[in-house]
Simulated scan of single mutants.
Amino acid sequence: MEQRLANCVQLTVNEKQFIENALLSELRVDGRGPLEYRKLSIKFGKDDGSAEVQLGETRVMSFVSAQLVQPYKDRPNEGTLSIFTEFSPMADPSFEPGRPGESAVELGRIIDRGLRESRAIDTESLCILSAKLVWAIRIDIHILDNAGNLVDAANIAALASLLTFRRPECSLGGEDGQQVVVHPPEVREPLPLILHHLPVAVTFGFFSNENLVVLDPTYHEEAVMTGRMTATLNANGDVCAIQKPGEQGIFQHIIMHCLKLAHVKAGDITAKIKDAVEKHNNERALQKIKRRSSSVSVDVCGTTARLGGKQNQSGGGKDNSHLDQLKPKDEANFMECDATSSGQVQINKKDEGSKNFTGGPSSWYGKKDPYSECVNSDLLKAPMDSEC
Results as ranks from 00 to 15, higher is better:
Val224Ala: 07
His197Lys: 06
Met229Val: 15
Phe204Pro: 00
Val214Gln: 04
Ala223Tyr: 06
Ala201Gly: 14
Val187Thr: 12
Val224Cys: 12
Val214Pro: 08
Met225Gln: 09
Ala235Ile: 05
Pro185Phe: 01
Leu191Val: 15
Ala235Asp: 08
Val213Tyr: 09
Arg228Ala: 07
Val214Leu: 14
Phe206Arg: 02
Ala223Arg: 00
Arg228Glu: 08
Phe206Asp: 01
His183Lys: 03
Val187Asp: 07
Val213Ser: 09
Pro199His: 00
His220Met: 15
Val182Thr: 06
Leu193Gln: 11
Met225Leu: 15
His183Ala: 09
Pro217Val: 13
Leu193Thr: 14
Leu195Pro: 08
Ala223Gln: 05
Pro185His: 04
Val239Met: 06
Leu198Arg: 03
Asn234Ile: 04
Glu189Gly: 02
Ala201Thr: 15
Ala235Met: 05
His197Cys: 13
Val214Ser: 03
Val181Leu: 13
Val181Tyr: 10
Glu222Tyr: 07
Arg188Met: 05
Val187Ala: 08
Asn234Pro: 06
Val202Ser: 03
Cys240Ile: 11
Leu193Met: 12
Met229Cys: 09
Phe206Ala: 08
Phe206Asn: 05
Met225Tyr: 07
Val180Ile: 11
Thr230Pro: 02
Pro199Ile: 11
Asn236Phe: 12
Gly237Cys: 04
Thr230His: 03
Leu212Gly: 09
Leu193Phe: 14
Arg188Phe: 09
Val187Met: 06
Asn236Arg: 07
Tyr219Lys: 03
Ala231Trp: 00
Thr218Cys: 14
Pro199Ser: 13
Phe206Ser: 09
Val202Pro: 05
Val182Tyr: 02
Cys240His: 09
Leu215Ile: 03
Arg188Pro: 01
Glu221Val: 15
Asn209Ile: 12
Val187Phe: 00
Gly205Ile: 07
Glu222Ser: 04
Val200Thr: 15
Val239Glu: 03
Pro190Asn: 01
Val182Cys: 00
Phe206Lys: 02
Pro185Met: 02
Asp216Ala: 00
Glu189Tyr: 08
Arg228Leu: 07
Phe206Tyr: 12
Pro185Val: 08
Pro184Cys: 04
His196Asp: 07
Leu193Gly: 11
Phe204Asp: 00
Pro184Lys: 01
Pro190Val: 09
Asn211Glu: 14
His197Ser: 15
Thr232Gly: 11
Leu193Ser: 13
Asn209Tyr: 02
Met229Pro: 00
Asp238Cys: 05
Glu221Thr: 14
Asn209Met: 11
Gly227Pro: 01
Glu221Asn: 13
Ile194Met: 06
Leu195Gly: 10
